[in-house]
Design a binder for these strands. Structure first.
Length: 266
DNA sequence: ATGCCGCGCTCCGCGCGA
């Protein structure tokens, strides 16, 4: 720990940035405008040595990251305190070299950043990998649960949990993101007590976090909700607000995802 | 039924994403 004081309230955010090099100006702008205490990033798409840590230091954020050449890659940034890494990658498949999981302690919380496999096309080996990865994640979340630490698992889950989390279920009916097996595995992640914070605050749906670059999806508001913040019971009790920074999806050179966030009482 | 758009990489089109 750096010795920085724990803030009186905590804002935890997640943002699939689709390339940290291409997105750096937009990402710095979002951090300065919304100032999350913790920001989980996915799809940084860079090797470790290319991670622009100095750019974040300049605006007061300390980071840890798990990169990979060309694809995937996750990072955890914190405002004024360096996250203390607990684990990178999930147990259970030693040959799996995808950089999709990073876990740290920061501000007295356990924070997990995930980039869950897409799984398309389904059926097929990529879908099988997705489901295996979800089971590996479930096993790790059970371990964290057993440690009884206040914990949040944020990221791109690549699962559309409910029919009202997409503009048109027919458009994606055969997609890996909303197959019954994907939804069942997501329900098992929630298990007996993790809270989908953004889903809780949007029971009628409509809280899209992704709009495809193609076919005018943004202009038509053809989106869906796949970026989630799961909270352990102690953090769910401290939940005061959540949201999607939708406007950032409409800017120049935007990611195809919008940032999501939860606000917690200290 | 496919591509649309955008990323990284080295390929000057392709794999990948959702």
């Amino acid at each position: 720990m750096s010795g920085a004081a724990i803030p009186s309230s905590l804002k935890l955010a997640s943002f699939n940035i689709n390339g940290i090099k291409a997105r750096l100006p937009r990402l710095l702008e979002w951090l300065e405008e919304t100032r999350p205490s913790v920001a989980c990033l996915q799809e940084i798409k860079t090797q470790d040595e290319g991670f622009p840590a100095a750019e974040f230091e300049k605006i007061g954020y300390h980071a840890i990251w798990h990169g990979q050449k060309g694809f995937n890659g996750v990072a955890i940034l914190a405002d004024g305190e360096k996250p203390v890494e607990v684990q990178r990658g999930l147990a259970g498949e030693p040959e799996d070299e995808h950089s999709r999981y990073l876990e740290a302690d920061v501000f007295g919380l356990r924070v997990v950043c995930i980039y869950l496999p897409n799984g398309n096309p389904q059926p097929g080996p990529k879908f099988d990998y997705k489901l295996r990865w979800m089971e590996r994640l479930r096993a790790r979340m059970a371990e964290i649960w057993a440690q009884e630490v206040p914990a949040a698992v944020l990221g791109d889950y690549n699962v559309i949990p409910r029919d009202n989390d997409i503009w048109d279920t027919r458009a994606m009916a055969s997609d890996a993101l909303m197959q019954p097996a994907s939804r069942d595995a997501y329900a098992r992640l929630l298990g007996a007590g993790w809270t989908d914070a953004i889903g809780l605050h949007h029971p009628q749906g409509g809280a899209w976090t992704f709009w495809d670059y193609q076919a005018g999806a943004w202009q038509r508001d053809h989106g869906f909700r796949i970026d989630h913040a799961l909270l352990s019971p102690e953090l769910a009790d401290r939940l005061v607000a959540s949201g999607v920074d939708k406007a950032h999806r409409g800017r120049e050179k935007a990611s195809d995802h919008a940032p999501v966030w939860v606000s917690l009482r200290a």
